[in-house]
């Protein structure tokens, strides 16, 4: 069963060129950003006459940067926890059930992920004021969680739809009540999907600028801090911060991808 399209040599080389051109286009800016973080000069640009790690030591000894980094991480973790619990719950309620208005329910569930960030940020801001919620950590967590719930629900629903009905019936048959069947069979089956979705939510939250900007109080999240720093001029310190963030997120992303793939493989019988 070979479903690959046969290509002649010329076409193959052409496609390879296009591919690598695309890769360069995507990665050259990132590479430049990383390289400039090691430049021993305040001015970003070529030529580079000498190298330094000073910008990195600067970042790691800058209390404000470190604090902000921690602040962003806490927001990411808490908002992810909420998204995962709510998102999984919705997935379990929606998947495989037929009821009147299911399509509408589903659409409403997906909507938060589709509303443009700027619009939902403004809406949240107004709503928060009406409710008397102060801008700050709580408001940001709330906005991130709402935005991320659909991603969790979609990923978990996709996984749930592959759980054979007989698995739950077998658990019931062997003496498990519905709750026990869920805890012992459904939930373990969903773990890879939940973990994958969690990492995605963490990264989305960590990366978010618009919502954090509109709903933040006096303490900025990392993207907001970088934005603020930019206003006082581009400095290689920003490059260093960005590089650290890039390495961390890439590492987490790759680990999660490998983990979910392995878990998926194991559960296939």
């Amino acid at each position: 069963m070979n479903r690959r399209v046969e290509l002649n040599r010329g076409n193959r080389i052409f496609l390879a060129c296009v591919y690598w051109a695309f890769v360069l286009y995507v990665f050259v800016p990132l590479i430049l950003m990383i390289v400039m973080g090691f430049k021993d000069s305040k001015f970003i640009g070529f030529p580079i006459r000498s190298w330094t790690l000073d910008w990195y030591t600067g970042v790691f000894s800058d209390a404000e940067v470190l604090y902000t980094f921690g602040y962003s991480v806490v927001i990411a973790i808490l908002s992810t926890l909420i998204s995962v619990i709510v998102g999984t719950w919705i997935a379990v309620l929606l998947e495989g059930r037929k009821f009147w208005g299911r399509a509408v329910t589903f659409g409403l569930m997906v909507l938060p992920a589709l509303v443009p960030g700027i619009i939902s940020a403004i809406a949240f801001r107004i709503y928060a004021r009406m409710l008397g919620i102060e801008p700050g950590m709580g408001a940001i967590i709330w906005a991130h969680a709402v935005h991320n719930v659909p991603f969790v629900t979609l990923v978990v629903m996709a996984r749930l739809s592959t759980l054979p009905k007989s698995q739950i019936e077998a658990a019931r048959d062997l003496g498990a009540d519905p709750l026990m069947a869920f805890m012992r069979i459904t939930l373990p089956y969903l773990v890879p999907a939940i973990l994958g979705a969690s990492v995605f939510c963490l990264l989305l939250s960590f990366d978010d600028f618009v919502r954090s900007f509109f709903l933040g109080g006096y303490e900025p999240t990392l993207p907001v801090l970088i934005f603020a720093m930019l206003r006082s001029g581009m400095s290689p310190e920003i490059n260093a911060i960005a590089t650290v963030a890039l390495v961390l997120t890439a590492a987490i992303g790759i680990w999660a991808e490998r983990f979910t793939r392995r878990a998926n493989k194991e559960s296939q019988t």
């Binding site: 007989s166 019936e169 077998a170 019931r172 089956y189 019988t269």
Partner: peptide, 20 residues
């Protein structure tokens, strides 16, 4: 009576063994 309360057990067509 729900399945969990019956003194009846079943061998499923796809066996339904718990993979984990």
């Amino acid at each position: 009576q729900p399945p969990e309360r019956r003194h009846v057990n079943m061998v499923f067509q796809d066996y339904a063994l718990f993979p984990h």
